[in-house]
Amino acid sequence: MTRMKIHRIGAALVTVLALSAPALAQATDADKEIERYRAMINDPMANPGYLAVDRGEVLWSTRRGARNVSLEGCDLGEGVGKLEGAFAKLPRFFKDADRVMDLEQRLLWCMQKVQELDTADVIKRRFGGPGVDSDMQDLVAFIANKSNGMAYQPQLSHPKEQEMLAVGEALFHRRAGVNDFSCTTCHGEDARRIRLQALPNFSKPGKDAQDTMGSWPTYRVSQSQLRTMQHRLWDCYRQMRHPIPEYGSDGITALTVYMVTMARGGEITVPSIKR
């Protein structure tokens, strides 16, 4: 697919959204409308997120760094170079790093240790934008896609994984800032909306968390980008009027551990496509 064509698809999707928004406001069964819309655009051939998957596949096997090797020598937790099911068990504790890592932290670690790649540029391009491709977004799309059809299996046997879960739960409820917001402000109750946007409840295990985590990473039509959970949480903190959270920091990973725990058993179908 050409870049031009992708932009046209993106524009068409935005139009669909814009047109359906006023209708949704009056719809007696808005959820059904949204389901119909999702089904319509969930065709992999129409989801530009799959272009990120393809780019990620190339990046995974590209020789880079001082050692001129590919990321195929990277162990994402299931064994060196093994991709199937790796995402379903992340974040997890890695003995070689003596840390719990999410996929993005682990990829950065592998770039630094396996490839001996200077990751400054990769980190600079952590979030893609107009004219800026993001290696991390592409790699996450490719690797997460290799867990499609599998269920989230939160890894909680190691004490450091347990610490991450407890801290993640505390961060989820931690109120601060000029609006006194925490994650619970929007995601602490069932069936609430912000404006017309339905808000999933992440304060308990179950369907909301399963559906949400099972559909990230996702292609955001409004942003014309494949987005990862690191980006989503960055955007949450922006809306919470908090300062910019550090990319790949342990706090973001702790929140991710908490959310995959709430999403335990949720089936992974990624990249999905969202507004």
Binding site: E163, V167, E169, A170, R174, H242, E246, S249
Partner: peptide
């Protein structure tokens, strides 16, 4: 699933996050 986190530990994460 888990015990509540120790406030000092949470603060360590908060400090490194920002």
């Amino acid at each position: 699933q888990a015990a509540q986190a120790d406030p000092a530990t949470v603060d360590r994460y908060v400090q490194s996050m920002w």
